[in-house]
């Protein structure tokens, strides 16, 4: 019960900070000319593309302030802040100048190293059917790999207005429920901080988007999810919650035969006509979740995002079933 003020404070503070930082981010994007073209609309608006900085500011400051106020500062909280900041820097770098598609996963793996070096992990994951397994040697190797996979998976979902934000909200809420049920306060309050910022950001990112998250936002959210799951020993639940994102990521990598820039695609996965999306029938087009959703009929951007959220809710339910019925 004593954790409730902490959860509430981190949620409110991160939401307020994110809301307050939006005008500053918009002017920063204008000055740096960081705009993205919203290609799914006939009027093709230019939208500031570093909106994810508001999530980064909201969560980082909120976590720092609340952890000091509630005496929660420890190596796990500090490792969370450093790892997620490194991922945000990689994202910001890519927003300014496109990174080499092979270098990016390497840099994202490096972002996971503070978690390893600061010992913010518990190398005895609880696996389905068999219980705890000792992974003292393998676990530190898996942490950077998990960072690369999850951050890229979340990043791969950032293709439509609100798609990354709303599906991430479902994932964070699932992880929060598990942490809360297990009485695990540090990951729970990191989740509420992330939820507060994401909900505010969703207001600006929903259709029609007034702010794009940019790589800085999607990589930051992915790194936050990974850090929280590792700190709170909820690795399996996280992987199942974000199965749609992971499937999307590997479909793209597999279809493109490795890490390649999306700009080098000969065929795009989805075609747009009169603001309606439909799957590209060409076999050369990469397979994506949006392409699968639009395979049967043309859909509006809003409808596709709603369906992505529904799929995320299905995978969140599977994660909860796994965590409470199969692992326990």
């Amino acid at each position: 019960m004593s954790a409730i003020p902490l959860l509430f404070a981190s949620f409110i503070l991160s939401a307020l900070l994110s809301y307050a930082s939006v005008p500053f981010i918009k002017s920063l994007a204008r000055k740096a000319k960081l705009f993205g073209v919203d290609v799914h609309k006939s009027w093709r608006p230019l939208v500031p593309k570093i909106g994810g900085i508001s999530v980064f500011i909201g969560v980082t400051v909120s976590v720092l302030v609340t952890s000091f106020l509630f005496n929660m500062v420890d190596n796990r909280v500090l490792a969370f802040i450093i790892s997620t900041e490194l991922a945000a820097i990689v994202g910001l770098w890519e927003d300014f100048r496109e990174l080499n598609p092979v270098l990016k996963p390497v840099l994202l793996a490096l972002a996971g190293l503070p978690i390893v070096f600061m010992g913010a992990y518990y190398p005895y994951p609880n696996l389905p059917f068999v219980g705890k397994r000792m992974l003292t040697i393998l676990y530190p190797i898996l942490v950077p790999i998990a960072f690369t996979i999850v951050t890229n998976a979340v990043n791969s979902m950032d293709v439509l207005n609100g798609s990354m934000t709303f599906t991430s909200i479902v994932a964070v809420f699932t992880i929060f429920l598990i942490a809360l049920t297990n009485g695990n306060a540090p990951p729970a309050y990191l989740c509420t901080a992330l939820l507060g910022s994401l909900i505010v950001f969703a207001y600006y990112n929903k259709y029609p988007a007034r702010l794009f998250s940019g790589n800085v936002g999607s990589l930051y959210v992915g790194a936050s999810l990974t850090s929280i799951a590792i700190i709170g020993s909820m690795e399996i639940a996280l992987l199942i919650t974000i199965l749609p994102q992971i499937m999307n990521e590997f479909h793209i990598i597999y279809s493109m035969k490795g890490f390649r820039s999306a700009k080098n695609l000969s065929e795009r996965p989805v075609l747009v006509e009169n603001d309606m999306l439909s799957a590209n029938p060409s076999k050369k087009a990469p397979i994506t979740l949006v392409r699968m959703l639009t395979s049967r009929c043309s859909l509006s951007e809003k409808e596709v995002v709603k369906m992505l959220v529904m799929i995320s809710i299905v995978s969140a339910t599977l994660a909860l079933i796994t965590e409470f019925l199969i692992i326990k």
Partner: peptide, 24 residues
């Protein structure tokens, strides 16, 4: 892949404009 191309073969998907989405 099998599921997607089966659906597309049955008539799903549309030839459309040149504008499109980005997978990452």
């Amino acid at each position: 892949t099998f599921w997607l191309y089966r659906v597309l073969k049955k008539g799903g998907g549309h030839e459309g404009s040149e504008r499109n989405d980005s997978p990452s």
